[in-house]
Computed example of a mutant assay.
Amino acid sequence: MQTKEVAISATQASLDVTLSDDNKNLDEVLVVGYGTVRKSDLTGAVSTLKGSDLNRTPASSVDQLLQGKLPGVQVINSGGQPGAGATIRIRGASSLNGSKDPLMVVDGFPWGDAGNLKQINPEDIESIEVLKDASSAAIYGSRGANGVIIITTRKGKAGQARINFSSLNTLSTRANEPDLWRDPVEEAIYANEAAANGGAIATDIPYIGMTRPFGVGDQTIYYPSIAELRGLDPSKEPWRYNTDWVDLVYRNPISQSYTLSADGGTENTKYALSGNYYKEEGIAIKNDYDKYTGRLNIEQNLNKAITAGTNVVLAHTNNTGGGLGVGRSRI
């Protein structure tokens, strides 16, 4: 149907809209498991997403860019770790014990489950088709039981030589501050009360001015008393430690993505190559994710009946840091 915009007023209680057929969309060609068909002739359940429709937001993989774009496709982020992939489900879970991941097919070649989407640069994608019913995915057998994600990458065109460079940089901030102790005296008082209410003996109450074993070996740690924390102990100096771990550990992370691509060719030879560098910083310091991807596509017409080509995708990732949190004592 054709897109239609209608103005409404604040006092309008109801609205009737009549949409017109969009014949151009009916002639659109879709890629399915057994070839290509016109949209008007398609009887299976297929959703299409063009590469230009993907959000221009930095992400470590394509799966994170599919959220909310295709009906029947559920994308669940596993966490906030830099470079963490997402879980994809097509029309819900189809198995109790077996794999629930859909099959990924790139330019006609099965690549395995959807977790391998991290190997593809979003800038290289021409279109994505998701096959959701049994008839469309039947050609892939049991591998397509959970649905099929078909990705078509960009290829060179005869007579068009292009060089393109794109960059994307973002800065993220925390929406909310963690609810942690702000006053070391209150933290120590409640820790002592919790230990006492739990049945601890007097010497096991933490903050009473004692040195206790810590870790392995002969390491020790000193727990100051409440009076020492308040600066009321005449025999000791006021306690000078009050570490704000949120300010020390957390940061405003920056994400960067740079892509350089070139494509073109002649009637007999077509080429497309690209390289991408993606860097994502975690919210905690020293927690980073780096990804390098490269792609080379060449098609050569040997004669009118034979065409040879190659499609190579290389990816290297490096994840550093992790496990650094702010749930520590200010004391």
Results as ranks from 00 to 15, higher is better:
Val6Lys: 13
Gln12Val: 14
Ala13Trp: 07
Asp16Leu: 13
Asp16Cys: 10
Ser20Glu: 15
Ser20Gly: 14
Asp21Pro: 14
Lys24Arg: 11
Asp27Phe: 13
Leu30Cys: 06
Val37Gln: 00
Arg38Gln: 13
Leu42Lys: 03
Gly44His: 01
Ala45Gln: 07
Ser47Glu: 09
Gly51Lys: 03
Ser52Trp: 09
Thr57Gln: 15
Pro58Phe: 05
Ser61Gly: 15
Leu66Asn: 03
Asn77Ala: 11
Gly79Phe: 10
Gly80Met: 08
Ala84His: 05
Thr87Ser: 11
Arg89Ser: 11
Arg91His: 10
Ala93Asp: 03
Gly98Cys: 06
Ser99Ile: 11
Pro102Asn: 05
Met104Leu: 15
Trp111Leu: 12
Ala114Phe: 04
Ala114Gln: 03
Lys118Asn: 08
Asp124Lys: 00
Ile125Gln: 01
Ile125Phe: 03
Ser127Thr: 09
Ser135Lys: 12
Ser136Asp: 08
Arg143Ile: 05
Asn146Thr: 05
Gly147Trp: 00
Gly147Thr: 03
Val148Cys: 09
Val148Trp: 00
Ile149Glu: 00
Thr153Asn: 07
Lys155Cys: 07
Lys155Pro: 08
Gly159Glu: 07
Gln160Val: 14
Ile163Glu: 07
Asn169Tyr: 11
Asn169Ile: 12
Leu171Gln: 13
Pro178Tyr: 11
Leu180Phe: 13
Glu186Arg: 08
Ala191Cys: 09
Ala202His: 06
Thr203Pro: 01
Ile205Trp: 03
Pro206Ala: 07
Pro206Met: 08
Ile208Tyr: 00
Ile208Cys: 07
Ile208Pro: 00
Thr211Gly: 08
Thr211Cys: 10
Gly217Ala: 08
Asp218His: 14
Tyr222Glu: 10
Tyr222His: 11
Tyr222Thr: 00
Ser225Gly: 15
Glu228Asp: 07
Arg230Ser: 01
Gly231Gln: 02
Leu232Trp: 03
Asp233Trp: 03
Asp233Pro: 04
Pro234Gln: 03
Ser235Val: 00
Tyr241Cys: 04
Trp245Cys: 04
Leu248Ala: 13
Leu248Lys: 13
Gln256Leu: 08
Tyr258Ile: 08
Tyr258Met: 09
Tyr258Cys: 03
Asp263Gly: 14
Thr266Gln: 02
Leu273Lys: 06
Tyr277Ser: 06
Gly282Lys: 01
Ile285Pro: 02
Asn287Arg: 03
Asp288Val: 10
Tyr289Arg: 02
Tyr289Met: 06
Lys291Trp: 05
Leu296Ser: 09
Asn297Phe: 09
Gly309Thr: 01
His316Gly: 12
His316Pro: 00
Val326Phe: 04
Ile331Pro: 01
